[in-house]
Every structure is written in structure tokens, then in C-alpha cells.
Computed example of a mutant assay.
Amino acid sequence: MIEATEEPTGKCKKTCRSMLGLTLAFASAIFAAIMTLLVKFLQEAGADHLLLVRWFVQYFFMLPVLSWRREAYVKSRRTNITLFVASTTCAFASTALFFSLTMLPVGDAVAILSTYVPLVGFFACVFLKEPCRVSDVCFAVLALAGLVLVARPPFIFGSETQSPASTSGSRTLGIILATAAALLSAIAMVAIRKMGDKVHFSLFLFYFSLWGFVISIISILSTKELVLPCLDDILVMFLSAFAALLNAILVTLALQNGAAGPVTIVCTSEVVLVFVFEYFFLNVVPSVYSVIGAGLIMTSCIGLAALSIRESNKE
């Protein structure tokens, strides 16, 4: 009787943990969309300055947390290596993405970055031995199709949204940076999942912010483009930084509680939320392609959530 009672309890805990991961992933997408919306209100500040403020806020926000937890390092060497990989790849991915947005149309950059979704499932299957089902592949393809329709990259839909100011050289470099951001994001997602709950999210965000801060300082000093932003830009940058902080915390917790593949695809709902916020706050009416793409992404998210519950109940 005791064993029969404990078995359903274990299944229930696993199901609840899986759903918690998906819920945290969707919440992180909300804050990521807010962060994106706030960036559109910048007037003078550039990508370097926005990233610098983001790392500054995250770094000093995590200092008291680490002091309270008295945790500055991990004793396990293997876990330390995984932490280093996760924090550095996250920092480089964020930097590469923001720089690619200055050289590419936003649609191109988003479409290229979205390729990290199937890469996460592939890396998780290879390194974490997570099951890779046919349904996972189908939902990943569905999400990617939705992202492409929402982003409408010019190299697929024509040159209607192509920026005339972009040159061939800068576009090529932008594509390389966006591709690097996608690859690094996939590696970071799997590394965070590998750490699991062995590393507190505050420790990961501390080193993530530290490496990002160093990268931004080097970038600003090398380009010599340090300027003092206006008060409105400072307010927007700090609000965006706090939204990014909440997004990073929620993503880390989501990956620690749910499978890397489903959590990552749920995070792609950020694209849908961005268009919703744009409609209500900036009066930007989405096109038919955007509506169809948003529907495909949400269908993929709902399907993965249902599949996760079903598989947890079977085990």
C-alpha cells in the first residue's frame, strides 16, 4: 500500500515540475517581449550602452544574493566547467545578436536566430540523452515555420523590407554574427540544463553578467563610442535591464525544471507577444503573415505542453 501511494506521488511531482518549467518559460517570454518593446523607445543610446547597463544591473543585483547564500563557486570541477561554458556562451550570444541587429534587418536576424530551437533539441539528445521523438521534431519545424512567417526575412519574401543602407559586407558579417548567436544560444541552453539544480541561478547570472560586462567594456573602448545618453534613454535602459534580469532568471529556472527542447520552443512565443504589445502600445497592426505565424507558434507551444504532460503521466 505504501509503494502504491508513493508511485503516483512521484509521477505527480514530475508532472508538476515539467509544467512549472513550461510556465516559467512563458513568463520569461513575456519579460523578453517587454525588454524588446522598451528598446524601441531609445533615442541616442546604442547597442553597446544598452548591453553595458544590462550587465551592470544584473551583476550588482546578484552580489547581495550571493553574499546571503555564501556561494561564489562550485566545488565540482565538472560543474564548474559547465557553468563557465553556459555563462560565456550566453554573454557572447547576447553581444553577437545585438551587433547583428545593427547590420541586418530585424526580420533577417530573428529568422537566423530562431535556428537555435532545433539545435537545442539536437544537442540535448546527444549530450543529455534526452529523448528526441518524431513529435518533437514536428513541433520544432512548426515553430520555425511560424517564426519565419512572423519575421518575413527579405531573403525569402523579397526585398520589400530590405534596408537600403545595408552594404554587402556588413550584411555578410551580420549573418555570421546572427548565426553565431543562434549556435551559442543552443549550447548555453543545453549547458544550463546540464547543470540542473546543482548551481543556483544567481551564481550563473553573476558570471553571465560578469563576462558580458567585460565584453561590453572591451567593445566600447575598442570602438571609442562612449557617449552620455539623455535622461529618457537612461530610464528606458534601466527598465529594459530589469526586464532582461527577470527574463534571465525565469529562463534559468525553467531549464532547471523542464526539458530543454520544450522549454526553448515555449520561449519562442516571445515573437507573438512582441506583436501583441506593439499593437496595443505602438498601434502597429500585424500583417496576415504575422497572424498566421503567431498561430503556428502558439500551436507548437500548446502541443509541446500537452505532450510533456502525457509523457510524464506514462512514466
Rank of each mutant, 00 (worst) to 15 (best):
P8R: 05
G10R: 15
R17L: 14
A25K: 03
A33I: 00
A33H: 03
T36I: 08
T36K: 10
V39Q: 12
Q43P: 04
G46K: 03
F60W: 05
M62E: 08
M62D: 08
P64W: 05
L66Y: 04
S67G: 04
R69N: 12
R70K: 12
V85K: 09
T88Q: 11
S94Y: 13
F99A: 07
T102P: 09
T102H: 11
Y116T: 09
V120T: 09
F127G: 10
K129L: 05
A140G: 06
A143V: 04
F155L: 05
F155M: 05
F157S: 04
S159L: 14
A165L: 12
A178P: 07
A181P: 01
L184H: 05
A186W: 01
M189G: 06
I192F: 09
F201K: 11
F204K: 10
F206V: 07
I215R: 06
D233L: 11
D233S: 05
A241E: 05
L246N: 10
V251D: 03
L253T: 06
N257Q: 00
A260Y: 02
P262D: 11
C267D: 15
V271A: 14
E278T: 04
F280E: 00
L282I: 06
L282Q: 05
P286F: 04
Y289T: 12
I297T: 03
M298K: 00
T299S: 15
S300F: 00
L304H: 02
N313V: 11
N313R: 15
